[in-house]
Write a protein that binds this DNA or RNA. Structure first.
Length: 581
DNA sequence: GCCGTTTTCGGCCCGACTGTTTTCAGTCG
């Protein structure tokens, strides 16, 4: 996980704890002990501060879900870069079996059965067994199970090819910091999918402005701690692979051409194709290292200079998908995009009352300190038993706590909300009286995903008839790299949302990012209000808001399209406008 | 393993779905 010179971060520690849990589970360890490690992993990954600090001042030991055994493991990881417990487990259980846990439909029991009766302990062996019929012959296995396994292995391959946005961004930031320390490097810039705010990232791309020869930079790169493999692509580009399996492309440029190089390292293939066509109309050619006109190159020290030379305004990176932005720029019709500073309220936050890790007060203080004007607290509802959903008595208790908190504030308000489960028939699991006691209601599907498109659409449409529902949470239910969206007629949903005045959510949890940005322009055209929800389960989750804003920008949305750019009173008015008086 | 006491040991998420069976175990959210 770590090596000398590399500072361990909380995500790496959380990964070790997750691995320990998985190995223990396969060993047949007590299920609650396994769960304790998972809880600890989650608590660690959402620590608001560096793990070293939390360890040093004792706050780690006080963190819920982190007990003495976990603290000891973390001390070892931070001090030595490895965990002897994990290493022991690795010797007892074939690591391939742990990888199998990520295949849907395979749990501990089935994997042990596969291992014991077929002697299979790697993914390739498992795939072979699924294809040649051996798997389907095991007791309580069948054709369907074998097909699921083959599908699961394929999607695992995809999952290792792509990374979630927030993980890729963390890697990119770390790389930029390391690169900017190298002699000869003037600046390092994040480019590629990360800069375009893509929800999934294949390659981390960083552009380096250097005042020395690229070869000198490459030499220093190869010596960076943690670099495992180094492959030159051409005289200005290298591919780095790190010990942890992550990879990154580093593009070196001179300062005078930085604009041309950064634009090409950032834009999608389609953006660059259309930009090339536009450039040709004024006799320009965009080549890898520079912008040319005939035999003379045009200086482009920054992106503004590049777009300017082509008669265009600077195009925000999130828009560079080749979906009409070059044409809009040429026509002076680029949208004015929403920015993080426009957001007044953090919505969709869970507390310890359901499955969050911070209290109402901790969360509210953190949101206020981050400069927002309001916080929408929305714990799970009663039927979400797995997430500690709130019964009406706890709702009343939380309401009293929020009222008390608000009395002590000026200029900041915590709102009483709920994330209510949409039941199979489209109704909610609270009566009107309970819903009326809240400032706003988010309604989300959390169960019964396997409906036909007609059934699921009818279910959500019916939910929108409930006059207390203000927002439909994570409308399509997808989990990136893990679960497909359920089938839903989004045109029908958007039409109704606009007609009755219900907002649709951009859920900014980096595992969801749902609605998909590709749907947002259609929503905007129909006049649907979009709510950006953090879906925070801890203070650290407040940072999701920025990812949500990135998605909104990708969808060409402006401040007026977003519900939580409204001041708190107007937000509550929107949330309550359909309620009976 | 963690938590919270009724303070050092007992409880911790439960109901629905899937794919297999032919009455239900295993997985999942």
């Amino acid at each position: 996980m770590s090596q000398t010179g590399h500072i361990v971060d909380r995500q790496e520690v959380a990964q070790v704890l997750e691995r320990i849990a998985a190995f223990q589970e396969l060993r047949g360890e007590n299920a609650y002990r396994v769960r304790a490690f998972r809880t600890a992993a989650r608590a660690v990954s959402s620590l608001p501060r560096p793990i070293q600090d939390a360890l040093a001042d004792g706050t780690l030991a006080e963190t819920r879900g982190v007990g003495p055994a976990t603290v000891q493991i973390i001390q070892e990881i931070v001090g030595t870069g490895h965990s002897s417990l994990l290493e022991d487990l690795r010797e007892q259980v074939p690591p391939g079996l742990v990888e199998m846990l990520a295949i849907g439909g395979l749990g501990v029991t089935k994997i042990r059965q596969i291992h014991e009766s077929l002697g299979v302990d790697t993914l390739p062996e498992l795939e072979a067994a699924a294809r040649d019929g051996r798997l389907a012959q095991l007791p309580r296995f069948g054709k369907r199970t074998a097909e699921n396994v083959i599908r699961g292995i394929a999607s695992l391959r995809q999952a290792t090819e792509f990374r979630l946005h927030h993980h890729a961004r963390e890697e990119a930031v770390r790389l930029v910091v390391a690169l900017e320390r190298l002699p000869g490097v003037l600046h390092a810039h994040i480019a590629g999918d990360v800069r375009r705010a893509m929800e999934l990232v294949r390659d981390v791309v960083v552009v380096v402005e250097a005042d020395c020869a690229p070869q000198e930079i490459f030499q220093r790169l190869a010596d960076l701690p943690g670099v495992h493999e180094f492959a030159g692509q051409d005289e200005r580009v290298v591919m780095l692979r790190f010990v942890g399996g992550a990879s990154a492309r580093v593009v070196v440029t001179t300062r005078v051409n930085a604009g041309a190089v950064l634009v090409q390292a950032t834009g999608s293939a389609e953006h660059l194709r259309r930009l090339g066509e536009h450039a040709a109309t004024s006799g320009h050619t965009l080549r890898a290292a520079a912008l040319w006109r005939g035999n003379s190159f045009t200086a482009t020290p920054d992106e503004g200079a590049l777009y300017g030379a082509l008669g265009l305004p600077w195009i925000p990176p999130e828009l560079r998908e080749g979906m009409g932005e070059v044409e809009a720029a040429a026509a002076g019709a680029l949208p004015a995009l929403v920015g993080p500073e426009d957001i007044r309220g953090v919505l969709h936050c869970h507390t310890v009352d359901s499955d969050g890790t911070n209290t109402v007060v901790e969360l509210a203080d953190a949101v206020a300190a981050a400069g927002f004007a309001y916080l929408g607290i929305t714990d799970h509802s009663e039927s979400a038993a797995y997430a500690g959903g709130l019964d009406p008595a706890i709702i009343a208790q939380q309401a009293a706590e929020i009222d008390g908190y608000n009395r002590r504030q000026s200029g900041f308000r915590a709102l009483k909300g709920i994330e209510a489960d949409i039941l199979a028939d489209g109704s909610l699991d609270y009566d009107a009286e309970t819903l009326a006691s809240l400032d706003f209601v988010i309604a989300s599907v959390h169960s019964r995903f396997h409906m036909t498109e007609e059934e699921m659409t009818a279910r959500v449409l019916k939910t929108m008839d409930n006059p207390y529902v203000a927002i439909i949470g994570h409308p399509t239910g997808r989990l990136l790299l893990a679960r497909k969206a359920f089938p839903l007629d989004m045109d029908a949903i958007m039409e109704k949302a606009a007609a009755v005045g219900v907002a649709l959510e951009i859920n900014a949890d980096p595992h969801r990012l749902d609605l998909d940005w590709r749907l947002l322009r259609r929503a905007k055209e129909r006049g649907v209000k979009i709510s950006i929800g953090a879906d925070a389960h801890s203070i650290a989750g407040i940072a999701n808001m920025e990812i949500g804003v990135g998605l909104a920008r990708k969808g060409w949305l402006g401040p007026a399209d977003i519900l939580n750019t409204l001041p708190v009173d107007e937000f509550v008015r929107f949330a309550c406008h359909r309620r009976p008086r």
